[in-house]
Nucleic acid binder design. Structure first.
Lengths: 211, 211, 211, 211
DNA sequence: GATGAATGAGTATTCATTCAT
DNA sequence: TATGAATGAATACTCATTCAT
């Protein structure tokens, strides 16, 4: 391992250290109430160091979303890698993957939406924004492949595969957000998983061709 | 009309004046970048006056969500008022109602989610929070009534009606948010309405009993 | 006096209050080491208030120069107003005026040069910059008038009047700066006035036509 | 050449390398906006290395002034070395020397004044400050020698030679600064050299005894 | 000597909120 | 009620300087 490579690895370790700290702090306090000093303390680094790895608070924040998307993409590739599985089985696996995504980072998916629907995006570097765009598109694309396959195999109803992917993702994220809201607003307990199960069931019934 | 009442009416007019201005400003700039002065200017009032009608920025913001919920509630009551309509027809009407909700305030529904899933809620007065809770619960309840009716009539599959309402609302808001995100992230055009139509179709197929 | 006018007057008073405080603090600490908080404290105001009257630190700073230039302009107009005085007498009066300018604000003239020769200028609003430009040009112009008169009357040597004004002003400011430097560098006592007297004498001899 | 000496020479080379880089960066950005990292990059060294050669940013900055003063001193010694030249010829040579000084570093002379009239000086090490003081005094002294000679020879008017040197230096630096200011403020072209020529002419006429 | 990653003190600026009028 | 000038707490970000390697 060259010295160059070792440094690069060290640098990546630091980035992750910061991201992990940021995740904790943002999750607890939200974007605005979380201060860079909070995050620095959590990461046991100085505020200045954060800026050696992330251009500004917003890019640090966006990096969290990226991490989720990266994880999502990996899981989707796994699902699609199973060549002999039929579309229906892949749909089951897709649903299972979404639970994993949620478990990977239950809170940050909320922040992800805060990010996307906010003015924040405009301050991101083109590089980061492009990366988010690409991953986002690829993820939807990977889901759409499953639906396309199902349509081709005659097991799913004939609708635009990308639209189906959009709807599937919307349903997932909508449920996650709404259940989280209910927890805060109504101080209800967390019913996400059963609700998500029912939601997926309804979706599956809705797209499967009746025999 | 007593003098008391007239004053009350005048006061309410001002509140609405401010809310309308706030809606515009928040929609354009988001919660954080919108300043109370921006809103005051838009409302053609002084900053101080805003505080005579709203305890703080967060309550003003939350009032916007309340307004949406109030509108939603009214539309739901309409749907449920049609006594002779069957559940399937009511479901159609419910879907139509959601388009109206979206048209009523296409942007603020996004802010509504920002609000709900954020740290902001914790600063609201109990009074306002209660009002939001009640409306939120009642809305879900009104939707659940439709699904319950359908189940009783044997036209919808037998799942918990409140869960179905949650899912329906999640789907709606999920699609609205996701399409908005895509517009920002991918600079795509606005495909909300066709996507929403497909989403509702899938949902309807998913909950209708097969004959 | 209308209410509008009274307010305007009050506003001007505040501006002057801030300028006076800023002058003291900048003179003592220089541009960089002086903090806005220092100035606010000196003015017995809060930091935020400073920004109600000056766009930023740099504009506040530049306003000090403006004040000197305004004073200079007034004195120059006085000198030129004396219609019957010959050019030689006006030159004497001009020199006397420069002492007054120095007395008006002995330290700030140094800051004025710091300002002009720095990157600071680039951050000024066009409005302020234009005002400085105009005053600066007009001042030189007013001095040039004196020299032009002298040339026309045949008492001063025939050189370009504006160049002579530039040189006169350069000599004045050069002496002020250099004597100030010597005080700091060599911890010498302040010999400005005799040096300035000699400088003016040399200048006067240099431009007067030999008979 | 001993190893000691070679090291010393190497060290001096590095110092000059840094000073040259610093000159470029300071000239372009001014003291405050120039960062040590900028200078390090320009010098193709690391920031830490700068501190092996200069105690801090301010000393590095001051070293630039020192370099000008050293050059000035050398030129003045040349002028005074010409034993047989009369005072008037030496004055001509002095003026020519000032053009060289300006050409040696047209921009840095401005920074030099920023330095001298600023808070910066107070942070310099005694050693450096003493060096600047000495050079500064010696330079003035060397000029004063010329004027003293002229007075003794009866060609210059009878004024204190040191005051005349101060005035000459003030005039030179005043013109340089003022012309630089005009370039920035009024976006005028650079008229330094003709203005300086006229200034020197006036000065020479002012101190020469009329026959 | 040379490096450059890490530091952390320092500060201009903003803006929600107040309160004298 | 309405105003809007004044407040002052809060914070992202910078950069001179250090020190382990």
């Amino acid at each position: 391992m060259g010295i160059q490579e070792r440094k690069e690895r060290e640098r990546e370790r630091r980035r992750q250290q910061i991201i992990v700290a940021a995740k904790r702090v943002f999750s607890e306090k939200g974007f605005n109430k979380a201060t860079m000093e909070d995050i620095a303390k959590e990461a046991e680094l100085s505020p200045g160091t954060l800026y050696l790895y992330f251009k500004n608070k917003e890019e640090l924040y966006a990096s969290l979303s990226l991490r989720i998307l990266q994880y999502l993409m990996i899981r989707l590739e796994h699902v699609n890698a199973e060549k002999n599985a039929g579309a229906e089985r892949k749909l089951d696996n897709l649903m299972a993957a979404m639970y994993d995504v949620y478990d990977f980072d239950p809170l940050i998916i909320i922040n992800m939406f805060q990010l996307q629907s906010s003015e924040t995006l405009k301050n991101l570097s083109d590089e980061l924004l492009t990366e988010i765009q690409d991953l986002s598109r690829n993820s939807i694309g990977a889901m759409a492949d499953i639906f396309r396959e199902g349509i081709d195999q005659g097991v799913f109803v004939d609708k635009h595969p990308v639209a189906m992917a959009d709807i599937f993702w919307s349903l997932f994220s909508g449920v996650v957000l709404w259940e989280a809201s209910k927890k805060v607003i109504n101080k209800e307990k967390d019913f996400l998983k059963p609700t998500l199960a029912t939601a997926f069931e309804v979706f599956a019934q809705g797209i499967k061709k009746k025999k």
